[in-house]
Simulated scan of single mutants.
Amino acid sequence: MPAPFGTHNGGMSSTTPVPVRRDVLSWIGVGVAGAALAVVAWACLTGWGGIVHGHPAYAILLSITALGALGFGAIALLRPVRAGLWRRIGRIAAVVLALLWVFVLAWLRPYPAVEPALEAMRSDASVDVVESGTRIVMQPTGGASATGIFFQPGALVDPRAYAAVLRPLAESGYTVVIVKQPLGIAFFSLGEFDAVVSENSDVQEWVLAGHSLGGTVAAIQADGDATGVAAGLVFYASYPASDISATLDVPTLSISGTRDGLATPDKIDASRADLPAATQFVVVEGASHAQFGAYGPQPGDNEPEISDDDARAQISSSTLDFIEALAG
Protein backbone atom coordinates (compact mmCIF):
# COMPACT_ATOMS: atom_id res chain seq x y z
CA MET A 1 0.00 0.00 0.00
CA PRO A 2 1.48 3.45 -0.89
CA ALA A 3 2.72 5.60 1.99
CA PRO A 4 0.40 8.48 2.94
CA PHE A 5 1.09 11.83 1.26
CA GLY A 6 3.78 13.89 3.02
CA THR A 7 5.45 10.98 4.87
CA HIS A 8 8.50 8.85 4.35
CA ASN A 9 10.80 6.55 6.28
CA GLY A 10 8.34 5.41 8.91
CA GLY A 11 5.91 8.31 8.61
CA MET A 12 8.16 11.30 9.55
CA SER A 13 6.81 14.47 7.94
CA SER A 14 8.99 15.93 5.18
CA THR A 15 8.36 19.39 6.66
CA THR A 16 9.84 18.51 10.07
CA PRO A 17 12.75 20.97 10.67
CA VAL A 18 16.18 19.49 11.03
CA PRO A 19 17.67 20.51 14.39
CA VAL A 20 20.62 22.93 14.15
CA ARG A 21 23.74 21.21 15.43
CA ARG A 22 25.80 23.28 17.88
CA ASP A 23 29.15 22.66 19.49
CA VAL A 24 31.22 24.25 22.25
CA LEU A 25 32.40 27.07 19.97
CA SER A 26 28.79 27.96 19.20
CA TRP A 27 28.00 28.45 22.86
CA ILE A 28 31.26 30.33 23.45
CA GLY A 29 30.31 32.67 20.61
CA VAL A 30 26.93 33.29 22.22
CA GLY A 31 28.69 34.01 25.52
CA VAL A 32 31.07 36.50 23.90
CA ALA A 33 28.15 38.27 22.22
CA GLY A 34 26.42 38.51 25.58
CA ALA A 35 29.59 39.86 27.17
CA ALA A 36 29.82 42.54 24.46
CA LEU A 37 26.25 43.65 25.11
CA ALA A 38 26.96 43.67 28.86
CA VAL A 39 30.03 45.89 28.36
CA VAL A 40 28.03 48.30 26.19
CA ALA A 41 25.36 48.50 28.90
CA TRP A 42 27.96 48.91 31.67
CA ALA A 43 29.79 51.67 29.77
CA CYS A 44 26.55 53.57 29.21
CA LEU A 45 25.41 53.21 32.81
CA THR A 46 28.72 54.22 34.40
CA GLY A 47 30.19 56.63 31.86
CA TRP A 48 27.19 58.16 30.11
CA GLY A 49 28.22 61.78 30.67
CA GLY A 50 31.70 61.17 29.32
CA ILE A 51 30.29 59.31 26.31
CA VAL A 52 27.72 61.94 25.39
CA HIS A 53 30.04 64.90 25.96
CA GLY A 54 33.21 63.32 24.59
CA HIS A 55 34.31 62.87 21.01
CA PRO A 56 31.60 60.86 19.15
CA ALA A 57 34.05 58.08 18.15
CA TYR A 58 33.45 56.00 21.28
CA ALA A 59 29.66 56.34 21.09
CA ILE A 60 29.83 55.15 17.49
CA LEU A 61 31.92 52.13 18.50
CA LEU A 62 29.43 51.26 21.23
CA SER A 63 26.57 51.34 18.73
CA ILE A 64 28.47 49.24 16.19
CA THR A 65 29.44 46.77 18.92
CA ALA A 66 25.85 46.37 20.10
CA LEU A 67 24.62 45.66 16.57
CA GLY A 68 27.58 43.41 15.84
CA ALA A 69 27.03 41.44 19.05
CA LEU A 70 23.43 40.73 18.12
CA GLY A 71 24.51 39.51 14.68
CA PHE A 72 27.45 37.52 16.04
CA GLY A 73 25.27 35.84 18.64
CA ALA A 74 22.56 35.01 16.10
CA ILE A 75 25.09 33.41 13.75
CA ALA A 76 26.66 31.40 16.56
CA LEU A 77 23.24 30.24 17.76
CA LEU A 78 21.42 29.58 14.49
CA ARG A 79 23.99 28.78 11.81
CA PRO A 80 24.62 25.04 11.35
CA VAL A 81 28.09 23.83 12.28
CA ARG A 82 30.01 22.76 9.19
CA ALA A 83 32.88 20.31 9.26
CA GLY A 84 36.40 21.19 8.20
CA LEU A 85 39.64 22.19 9.91
CA TRP A 86 39.88 25.65 8.32
CA ARG A 87 36.28 26.47 9.19
CA ARG A 88 36.99 25.58 12.80
CA ILE A 89 40.17 27.69 12.85
CA GLY A 90 38.24 30.61 11.39
CA ARG A 91 35.55 30.30 14.05
CA ILE A 92 38.16 30.19 16.82
CA ALA A 93 39.87 33.29 15.39
CA ALA A 94 36.54 35.13 15.21
CA VAL A 95 35.79 34.32 18.86
CA VAL A 96 39.27 35.40 20.02
CA LEU A 97 39.10 38.69 18.08
CA ALA A 98 35.59 39.39 19.38
CA LEU A 99 36.71 38.74 22.96
CA LEU A 100 39.72 41.03 22.50
CA TRP A 101 37.42 43.73 21.15
CA VAL A 102 35.22 43.45 24.23
CA PHE A 103 38.21 44.02 26.52
CA VAL A 104 39.40 47.02 24.47
CA LEU A 105 35.93 48.54 24.49
CA ALA A 106 35.72 48.19 28.27
CA TRP A 107 39.17 49.75 28.71
CA LEU A 108 38.16 52.74 26.55
CA ARG A 109 35.24 53.70 28.79
CA PRO A 110 35.84 57.34 29.82
CA TYR A 111 36.11 58.71 33.34
CA PRO A 112 33.06 61.00 33.50
CA ALA A 113 33.40 64.52 34.87
CA VAL A 114 32.01 65.35 38.31
CA GLU A 115 31.40 68.58 40.21
CA PRO A 116 32.58 71.29 40.29
CA ALA A 117 33.57 70.77 36.64
CA LEU A 118 29.95 70.40 35.54
CA GLU A 119 28.97 73.70 37.12
CA ALA A 120 32.00 75.34 35.48
CA MET A 121 30.59 74.32 32.08
CA ARG A 122 27.74 76.83 32.45
CA SER A 123 27.90 80.14 30.59
CA ASP A 124 27.45 83.32 32.59
CA ALA A 125 28.10 87.05 32.30
CA SER A 126 31.89 86.61 32.29
CA VAL A 127 32.46 83.41 30.28
CA ASP A 128 30.64 81.94 27.32
CA VAL A 129 31.04 78.15 27.13
CA VAL A 130 30.46 76.55 23.72
CA GLU A 131 30.64 72.79 23.26
CA SER A 132 30.89 70.92 19.96
CA GLY A 133 31.66 67.33 19.02
CA THR A 134 35.41 67.95 18.94
CA ARG A 135 36.13 70.66 21.52
CA ILE A 136 35.00 72.87 24.38
CA VAL A 137 35.64 76.61 24.07
CA MET A 138 35.58 78.99 27.02
CA GLN A 139 35.39 82.50 25.64
CA PRO A 140 35.64 85.64 27.79
CA THR A 141 32.60 87.84 27.17
CA GLY A 142 34.38 91.11 27.91
CA GLY A 143 37.01 90.95 25.20
CA ALA A 144 39.69 88.29 24.95
CA SER A 145 43.45 88.56 25.11
CA ALA A 146 45.54 87.79 22.04
CA THR A 147 46.89 84.80 23.99
CA GLY A 148 44.87 81.58 24.09
CA ILE A 149 45.19 78.25 25.89
CA PHE A 150 45.01 74.96 23.99
CA PHE A 151 44.47 72.05 26.38
CA GLN A 152 44.82 68.27 25.92
CA PRO A 153 42.97 66.12 28.53
CA GLY A 154 44.47 63.04 30.14
CA ALA A 155 43.86 59.62 28.63
CA LEU A 156 40.21 58.49 28.77
CA VAL A 157 39.15 61.52 30.81
CA ASP A 158 35.94 63.38 30.01
CA PRO A 159 37.17 66.74 28.64
CA ARG A 160 34.63 68.57 30.82
CA ALA A 161 36.60 67.40 33.88
CA TYR A 162 39.07 70.26 33.37
CA ALA A 163 36.48 73.02 33.15
CA ALA A 164 36.79 74.09 36.79
CA VAL A 165 40.59 74.28 36.84
CA LEU A 166 40.75 76.16 33.51
CA ARG A 167 37.77 78.48 33.90
CA PRO A 168 39.73 81.02 35.99
CA LEU A 169 41.93 81.54 32.92
CA ALA A 170 38.89 82.39 30.81
CA GLU A 171 37.57 84.65 33.56
CA SER A 172 40.90 86.49 33.39
CA GLY A 173 40.43 87.20 29.69
CA TYR A 174 42.07 84.23 27.93
CA THR A 175 40.33 82.01 25.38
CA VAL A 176 40.52 78.37 26.49
CA VAL A 177 40.08 75.48 24.06
CA ILE A 178 39.76 71.96 25.52
CA VAL A 179 40.18 69.20 22.95
CA LYS A 180 37.79 66.26 22.68
CA GLN A 181 40.11 63.44 21.64
CA PRO A 182 38.91 60.46 19.57
CA LEU A 183 38.51 57.53 22.00
CA GLY A 184 40.04 59.70 24.72
CA ILE A 185 43.59 59.25 23.38
CA ALA A 186 45.58 62.44 22.82
CA PHE A 187 47.72 60.91 20.06
CA PHE A 188 44.57 60.72 17.92
CA SER A 189 44.24 64.52 18.02
CA LEU A 190 47.72 65.55 16.98
CA GLY A 191 46.32 67.63 14.11
CA GLU A 192 43.76 69.45 16.23
CA PHE A 193 46.09 72.28 17.21
CA ASP A 194 46.50 73.40 13.60
CA ALA A 195 42.71 73.30 13.17
CA VAL A 196 42.15 75.42 16.28
CA VAL A 197 44.78 77.95 15.16
CA SER A 198 43.21 78.33 11.73
CA GLU A 199 39.71 78.80 13.20
CA ASN A 200 40.79 81.41 15.76
CA SER A 201 42.66 84.04 13.78
CA ASP A 202 42.06 86.63 16.51
CA VAL A 203 44.33 84.67 18.85
CA GLN A 204 47.92 85.53 17.94
CA GLU A 205 49.77 83.15 20.28
CA TRP A 206 48.92 79.96 22.10
CA VAL A 207 50.02 78.30 25.32
CA LEU A 208 49.76 74.55 24.85
CA ALA A 209 48.96 72.53 27.95
CA GLY A 210 47.86 69.07 28.93
CA HIS A 211 47.33 66.61 31.74
CA SER A 212 49.21 63.30 31.89
CA LEU A 213 49.27 61.79 28.37
CA GLY A 214 47.70 65.03 27.16
CA GLY A 215 50.74 66.94 28.36
CA THR A 216 53.05 64.55 26.53
CA VAL A 217 51.17 65.16 23.27
CA ALA A 218 50.95 68.91 23.88
CA ALA A 219 54.76 68.88 24.12
CA ILE A 220 54.97 67.12 20.74
CA GLN A 221 52.67 69.74 19.22
CA ALA A 222 54.56 72.66 20.76
CA ASP A 223 57.94 71.26 19.75
CA GLY A 224 56.74 70.63 16.20
CA ASP A 225 54.86 73.90 15.74
CA ALA A 226 55.62 75.23 12.28
CA THR A 227 53.34 78.26 12.49
CA GLY A 228 55.29 80.05 15.20
CA VAL A 229 52.21 80.69 17.33
CA ALA A 230 53.21 78.38 20.19
CA ALA A 231 54.26 80.77 22.97
CA GLY A 232 54.42 78.45 25.96
CA LEU A 233 53.98 74.90 27.27
CA VAL A 234 52.37 73.76 30.53
CA PHE A 235 52.53 70.22 31.94
CA TYR A 236 49.89 69.06 34.40
CA ALA A 237 51.33 65.96 36.13
CA SER A 238 53.16 65.13 32.93
CA TYR A 239 56.46 65.16 31.07
CA PRO A 240 57.72 64.83 27.47
CA ALA A 241 58.13 61.50 25.69
CA SER A 242 61.64 62.42 24.53
CA ASP A 243 64.39 64.96 25.06
CA ILE A 244 63.18 68.39 23.87
CA SER A 245 65.65 70.43 25.87
CA ALA A 246 67.52 71.58 22.76
CA THR A 247 64.62 71.92 20.33
CA LEU A 248 61.84 73.59 22.33
CA ASP A 249 62.41 77.34 22.63
CA VAL A 250 59.29 78.52 24.44
CA PRO A 251 58.80 79.12 28.19
CA THR A 252 57.74 75.93 29.94
CA LEU A 253 55.98 75.19 33.23
CA SER A 254 55.67 71.84 34.99
CA ILE A 255 53.05 71.52 37.75
CA SER A 256 53.06 68.26 39.71
CA GLY A 257 51.80 66.76 42.96
CA THR A 258 53.73 64.98 45.70
CA ARG A 259 51.01 62.31 46.06
CA ASP A 260 50.82 61.50 42.34
CA GLY A 261 50.92 57.73 41.83
CA LEU A 262 51.25 57.90 38.03
CA ALA A 263 53.44 60.90 37.18
CA THR A 264 55.38 60.29 40.36
CA PRO A 265 57.76 62.85 41.89
CA ASP A 266 60.68 60.69 40.74
CA LYS A 267 59.44 60.75 37.14
CA ILE A 268 58.90 64.50 37.25
CA ASP A 269 62.39 64.99 38.65
CA ALA A 270 63.86 62.78 35.91
CA SER A 271 62.07 64.87 33.26
CA ARG A 272 64.19 67.93 34.11
CA ALA A 273 66.94 66.66 31.84
CA ASP A 274 64.51 66.48 28.89
CA LEU A 275 63.15 70.01 29.29
CA PRO A 276 64.63 73.45 28.57
CA ALA A 277 66.97 74.64 31.32
CA ALA A 278 64.69 77.59 32.16
CA THR A 279 61.64 75.38 32.80
CA GLN A 280 59.71 76.37 35.91
CA PHE A 281 58.71 73.59 38.30
CA VAL A 282 55.78 74.02 40.68
CA VAL A 283 55.12 71.22 43.17
CA VAL A 284 51.72 71.08 44.87
CA GLU A 285 52.26 69.43 48.23
CA GLY A 286 49.76 66.65 48.89
CA ALA A 287 48.13 66.70 45.44
CA SER A 288 47.37 63.50 43.54
CA HIS A 289 47.20 62.77 39.82
CA ALA A 290 43.40 62.92 39.57
CA GLN A 291 43.19 66.28 41.33
CA PHE A 292 44.34 68.03 38.16
CA GLY A 293 40.83 67.36 36.88
CA ALA A 294 37.47 66.49 38.39
CA TYR A 295 36.64 62.91 37.45
CA GLY A 296 36.91 60.93 40.67
CA PRO A 297 39.64 58.53 41.78
CA GLN A 298 41.92 56.87 39.23
CA PRO A 299 43.49 53.38 39.45
CA GLY A 300 47.17 53.51 40.35
CA ASP A 301 46.92 56.94 41.96
CA ASN A 302 47.61 57.75 45.62
CA GLU A 303 45.26 59.25 48.16
CA PRO A 304 45.68 63.05 48.23
CA GLU A 305 46.59 64.87 51.42
CA ILE A 306 44.88 68.14 50.50
CA SER A 307 41.34 68.94 49.38
CA ASP A 308 40.31 69.07 45.75
CA ASP A 309 39.48 72.77 46.16
CA ASP A 310 42.94 73.53 47.54
CA ALA A 311 44.74 71.57 44.81
CA ARG A 312 42.64 73.15 42.06
CA ALA A 313 43.22 76.67 43.40
CA GLN A 314 47.00 76.19 43.44
CA ILE A 315 47.06 74.65 39.95
CA SER A 316 44.89 77.41 38.47
CA SER A 317 46.85 80.18 40.18
CA SER A 318 50.23 78.84 39.05
CA THR A 319 48.98 78.46 35.49
CA LEU A 320 47.52 81.96 35.43
CA ASP A 321 50.71 83.52 36.81
CA PHE A 322 52.71 81.78 34.07
CA ILE A 323 50.39 82.89 31.27
CA GLU A 324 50.15 86.49 32.48
CA ALA A 325 53.94 86.70 32.53
CA LEU A 326 53.98 85.52 28.90
CA ALA A 327 51.19 87.81 27.77
CA GLY A 328 52.90 90.78 29.36
Rank of each mutant, 00 (worst) to 15 (best):
H8S: 13
V52Y: 12
T227N: 09
P140S: 08
S123Q: 05
G232L: 05
I178Q: 02
A146I: 09
D310N: 11
I92C: 11
R91Y: 07
A209S: 11
V234S: 00
D249W: 10
L262E: 03
Q221L: 12
D124I: 03
V250Q: 05
N302Q: 13
M138H: 07
P112C: 09
V39G: 03
G257N: 08
A57Q: 02
F193L: 12
F235S: 01
G224E: 10
A3R: 11
M12T: 12
M12P: 13
R22N: 13
G300N: 01
T15C: 12
S132N: 10
A106N: 09
M138V: 07
A325Q: 11
V179H: 05
A74K: 02
A263T: 07
V102R: 04
G142S: 05
A57D: 03
A83Y: 01
D308F: 07
H55F: 03
G68P: 00
W86V: 12
H289K: 01
S126I: 11
G73K: 01
Y236T: 02
S26P: 00
F5A: 13
A327N: 14
V96R: 01
A117D: 05
V95W: 04
Y111W: 12
S271A: 07
S63L: 15
L77H: 02
L97N: 06
L190R: 15
E285R: 10
T46S: 12
W107E: 15
A59M: 12
D128T: 13
A120D: 04
D202V: 05
A38K: 08
G286V: 08
R312Q: 14
N302E: 14
W48N: 09
G210V: 01
D194M: 10
I315E: 00
A83M: 07
F188N: 15
Y174T: 00
A83R: 02
V197P: 03
V40W: 10
E305G: 11
Y162I: 11
D202A: 14
S172D: 15
G261A: 07
G191H: 06
E305M: 11
V18D: 09
V176I: 04
F72E: 07
I28F: 08
S238F: 05
W206N: 03
E171L: 09
V30C: 10
E119Y: 12
S201A: 15
V114E: 13
V229T: 15
P159L: 02
S63F: 14
V114F: 04
I136A: 03
V95K: 01
D128N: 15
L61D: 10
D266H: 09
F193K: 06
Q181G: 02
D23V: 04
P299R: 04
A294C: 08
D194P: 09
D128S: 13
A241W: 09
A98Y: 04
S238Q: 08
I28Y: 01
G68K: 03
G29T: 02
H53I: 07
I149G: 00
R22T: 14
G191N: 14
W42M: 15
A226N: 11
G71D: 07
V137Y: 09
T227A: 07
S242T: 15
E115K: 05
W206I: 04
G173R: 02
S14Y: 13
V250D: 06
D274I: 07
R109T: 13
A59N: 10
